[in-house]
Design a protein around this nucleic acid. Sequence first.
DNA 1: GTCAGTTCCGACAACGTTGTCGTCAACGCT
DNA 2: AGCGTTGACGACAACGTTGTCGGAACTGAC
Lengths: 333, 333
Amino acid sequence: MRITMKDVAQRADVSIKTVSRVVNGEGEISEATSRRVQEVIDELGYRPNRMARGLVTQRTNSIGLVVPNINNPFYPEVAEAVMSTARVSQHHMLLCSHENNYQEQQAILDSLVAQGVDGIIIFPALHGVEPLIRFSKSFSPLVVVNHEVDHPGIGVVRADIVKGAARAVEYLVGKGHRQIGMIKAERSPANRRWREQGFKQALAAHQLDFRETALVAGDSAASDIDGGYAAARELLTRHPDITAIFCYNDLMAIGAVRACQDMSRRVPEDCAIVGFDDITMASIVRPALTTIRINKYELGAEAARQLLMLLDDDSREASHVVLEADLIIRESA
Amino acid sequence: MRITMKDVAQRADVSIKTVSRVVNGEGEISEATSRRVQEVIDELGYRPNRMARGLVTQRTNSIGLVVPNINNPFYPEVAEAVMSTARVSQHHMLLCSHENNYQEQQAILDSLVAQGVDGIIIFPALHGVEPLIRFSKSFSPLVVVNHEVDHPGIGVVRADIVKGAARAVEYLVGKGHRQIGMIKAERSPANRRWREQGFKQALAAHQLDFRETALVAGDSAASDIDGGYAAARELLTRHPDITAIFCYNDLMAIGAVRACQDMSRRVPEDCAIVGFDDITMASIVRPALTTIRINKYELGAEAARQLLMLLDDDSREASHVVLEADLIIRESA
DNA sequence: GTCAGTTCCGACAACGTTGTCGTCAACGCT
DNA sequence: AGCGTTGACGACAACGTTGTCGGAACTGAC
């Protein structure tokens, strides 16, 4: 049998409302009764029922985090950050993944709303942001991560991927490389083109040629690695003069390193490899990957902070936050 | 403004209860009204409020998953499995991590109960299971993963780690190894001794000596690797005749491989290394790790299945499920 | 002693659902 | 015609909280 405010009220010989006041620290109460009620609460082990509270306040103290794929080593770090940040203000996190499936994404959003979450943080699926803009009209607050979406009600937190990609090129050029290839991901929607864009711009700034190869990758770590392997082989076969490769992400970079090794090119002496993301694995493989770090923890923490602020004060404007993407120099370039 | 049953009822010119019947498919309703109400529901885009429903049914259609540390590559796979399994029966998953902190674990459990989750799946913190047994008296259903706990109300899903460890030894012995060391984790509570137990038993069966080294490891991937590195150096220095090492987990095994390389021992020719868990990284590092696989997806899926069954039918007995831990042969041994 | 102002507290109505029970018509049976 | 049975629905009270409002008991000032 659950213990309710009624039980506490009876035992402490006060009204239900008084118990409510004590629980919520509403003040208008004498020191004596407050203490007495508190004692009964402790004694009975009373805990407020969030559903009942939520029914009247329209708040559940829970937020939703929607990611593409929890198996991608990128997202657990983000999730941890969101969880920790939410926890300090007593919020729970519901985790969902949409597997880059648009239908699934919409179903999840609907379902989170029905569940009564107070706000949602989402890494959108590949199908553009129009559905999210529509969604934000019937639900707020909403924070979108690593996508650019210009809509007053929607908060944005993202890494400066264009600049990050440019940094990789600058570094390689500084090391003397002139023939630089890129392995990109074909599945990319608009935002994923950011790497390509930064890459091209930086090359152009140095009047360098543009060589790239696209790969169609699935969503598992293994397929990204295999894809990177195949793409690197193709790229190096088509353009044997290439001395450096910039990769869409670290997993593909790991595959590219393998390809080089199998083609008897030493990394980094004969072919430098730069990855992207700086997942944990990047520092563990040999040669350790030189890569562009996205601060995943900060990404999640910032998104959560923004969501919680919007929750606190709904007159607040949703803002856009852009995090730096820094170059991490290790062994592969 | 939220759309409620009342709105639907007015518009369809029926009572609230009739709408409720349609929504829940309760049957006792004519085909005609049912269709009419359904049309209004679609037209208005009505979605039931789970909090209100939860308040009266005492169910929220959400379950809690409590893990030690979401950053450990082991747990996201489990989480995904739980999520997918829960989804088919319309359940959400709340994810929490207790960082192996007992206080935190209790706080999380309390908080999940207040949130109104229907059931909880937990990887316990290091402090034994008594608190969980106490907890299970005031809350059910509860499924514990990778711990053995004998209490009627608590379901258990775990991998057969003892046998897994024994398999590793059998394999090494079969390969001709006679001097086999083990790197274990000092932080281990009772259940974590399973590896040690299997290791010792298998050695004894072959009348082999027992050499081991303990390491005190933190909770990050990096510290496990570093710990494995240091432990392997120590072990090989103390017992230079060792030709094979069995490691507590894959991360430590990766560290051990490094140590061998730095000590000019080739892996596997001069020193074979066997890991445990089969995390994704195990197949990516070079040499790829021979390891004991815990089927993480199955672990999560089975735990979720059991929880959902207990949810469905509370007269059901909680059961104990033990999954095989198979040997995966790759390059390191 | 009256009066306004404060402090502390309780009654009561929400919030949006589901469960229980009752009603009322239609139906089949004798 | 009378009688139970069934099917289709509605009225109403829960569920456990919070918000609104009002009232009793004090306080201090004249």
